[in-house]
């Protein structure tokens, strides 16, 4: 049992319903439709007086608590699975960037910039839009998710072509 929960990889038909269950539990026990990306705006709101960050959704403490839990969950998964070994390795991206940490950092930071701006422009990320939004039948959420996927496939394959992976 321990092995099945903490060590061996979860097949998609276990992983997906578990994520869906956390979404439903957060609504049933917490009363909120979960979402991650807005909390990044909460961090900006704490340090900035820009009008954009005065909007109500950036001043809801539960969002910050929720995202603070995410690294704890990741840590638990890695520690209980027996593979916690902090480092800068990042899978096949290491080879794709020729082993250069600077190139990797630039790609991750630059990608992050687009992710952050895109999430605010779209009004959500894969958690708030693709899970919570589509599950409520939101057309905007479906459109955003199609956008995530279409641009993701296009840009990824362009990147591989350019870097020669």
């Amino acid at each position: 049992m321990y092995h099945a929960i903490f060590v061996s990889p979860w097949p998609w038909w276990v992983a997906g319903p578990t994520l869906g269950l956390v979404v439903v539990l957060t609504a049933w026990l917490g009363g909120k439709g979960l979402g991650v990306s807005t909390a990044y705006g909460s961090v900006c709101a704490a340090a900035s007086r820009l009008p954009f960050f005065r909007q109500r959704q950036f001043h809801e403490p539960w969002r910050v608590w929720f995202v603070a839990g995410l690294p704890l969950g990741g840590l638990a998964a890695a520690a209980l699975g027996g593979w916690f070994a902090p480092g800068l390795a990042y899978g096949s991206l290491d080879a794709l960037t020729g082993g250069s940490l600077a190139a990797r950092a630039g790609l991750l930071f630059g990608g992050g910039l687009l992710v952050g701006a895109g999430a605010r422009w779209a009004g959500g990320c894969p958690s708030g839009h693709s899970l919570v939004g589509i599950a409520q039948g939101s057309v905007a959420s479906l459109a955003a998710t199609v956008g995530f996927m279409v641009a993701g496939v296009a840009v990824f394959n362009l990147l591989v072509a350019v870097l020669g992976g």
């Binding site: 991650v36 990306s37 909390a39 990044y40 995202v67 995410l70 690294p71 704890l72 969950g73 990741g74 840590l75 638990a76 998964a77 890695a78 916690f84 990042y90 899978g91 991206l93 790609l107 991750l108 630059g110 990608g111 992050g112 910039l113 687009l114 992710v115 952050g116 701006a117 895109g118 999430a119 605010r120 422009w121 779209a122 009004g123 990320c125 894969p126 958690s127 839009h129 905007a140 959420s141 459109a143 955003a144 998710t145 199609v146 956008g147 995530f148 996927m149 279409v150 641009a151 993701g152 496939v153 296009a154 840009v155 990824f156 990147l159």
Partner: peptide, 28 residues
Amino acid sequence: AVWGGLTFGGGWALSGACPGTALAQVGE
């Protein structure tokens, strides 16, 4: 939703992560 979704998708492709998974990765 469309323009932001496309922008986000490009960033997802470059970094391999979204706002939630990036934070979970730090914990890992």
